[in-house]
């Protein structure tokens, strides 16, 4: 089995994001970026499937500017075998939406004869949670989203999913698309010898146009705003005042 795993370069989780003065996005210049944490979990799971001999090869994919190669190097240092970088200049990156990403992934999955596509359930920058689902639809493959456990079951994969109110276990045939949830695993960190080895692993570069994917956006960003600042509360002396205040505010 060959696995294609998608990794997105996002603003680091510890950074407090700031809205750009033109209100069309957030400040990304000079800000620390790293691999989307959910994608890291997907990479880890793919590598574990390889270590369990369920998979033969793990290929990491990232779409973005030159710096996306740093994210791919991280995936390679964790244990992916090779990588594909679909280059999109930094200035055009905001045009790339989950629909385009899904088109690129499905194209590569078909051309590269992959048996499994793995991605994080969502990226922590736009929180879209769409790529896995749309990719499965385009490929017409079964999907197992929000996976918290992936096991082999004969010719199938048994996937435990986190859903409202509990866990659901489903069986999917391969080829399939899996999206990783938080509790699937704890990703390893790249060791220094593996960081050095990763430099020798190949990264194949290509453009979206070479895959026949048009990056014209289907959504226009009108305005990006800071979340409203929470107003200070007040302390009341007793229950009567509380009820009076709530009535005043029209809550009871």
């Amino acid at each position: 089995m060959r696995i294609l795993v998608g990794v997105k370069r996002v603003i680091d989780y510890a950074v407090k994001v700031r809205v750009r003065p033109d209100k069309k996005g957030v400040v990304t210049d000079g800000v620390k970026h790293s691999m989307n944490p959910f994608d890291e979990i997907a990479v880890e799971e793919a590598i574990r499937l390889k270590e369990k001999k369920i998979a033969k090869e793990v290929v990491a994919l990232s779409i973005g500017p030159t710096q996306a190669q740093e994210t791919l190097r991280t995936a390679l240092a964790m244990g992916a075998d090779s990588a594909i970088h679909v280059e999109v200049p930094a200035g055009e990156l905001e045009r790339v939406q989950p629909l385009h990403v899904s088109r690129i992934i499905s194209k590569l999955a078909t051309e590269g004869k992959f048996d499994l596509v793995m991605v994080g359930k969502q990226a922590i920058d736009d929180d879209c949670n769409q790529t896995a689902q749309m990719t499965a639809a385009m490929l017409d493959w079964p999907q197992a989203t929000f996976a918290s456990k992936v096991e082999k079951d004969g010719d199938y994969l048994k996937v435990t999913r986190e859903i409202d109110g509990g866990l659901e276990t489903i069986k999917v045939g391969v080829p399939a698309v899996i999206s990783a949830d938080l509790r699937l695993n704890e990703p390893r960190y790249a060791t220094l010898p593996n960081i050095m080895k990763a430099k020798k692993k190949p990264i194949k570069k290509m453009k979206a146009s070479e895959l026949g994917v048009d990056l014209t956006p289907t959504i226009e960003v009108i305005s990006v705003e800071d979340p409203p600042v929470r107003a200070a509360g007040i302390k009341v002396d007793d229950v009567d005042t509380l009820i009076a205040k709530l009535k005043e505010a029209g809550r009871v």
């Binding site: 620390k32 190097r73 220094l192 430099k199």
Partner: peptide, 29 residues
């Protein structure tokens, strides 16, 4: 713990991608 700050990307002329990768691993530990 530091919950918000202006995280700057270190602009050291002698640091490359591998230096940052080492720092990432160490940060996780």
């Amino acid at each position: 713990s530091l919950n918000s700050c202006h995280f700057k990307v270190s602009a050291c002329p002698v640091y490359g991608e591998d230096h940052r990768e080492i720092q990432n691993t160490l940060k996780k530990i």
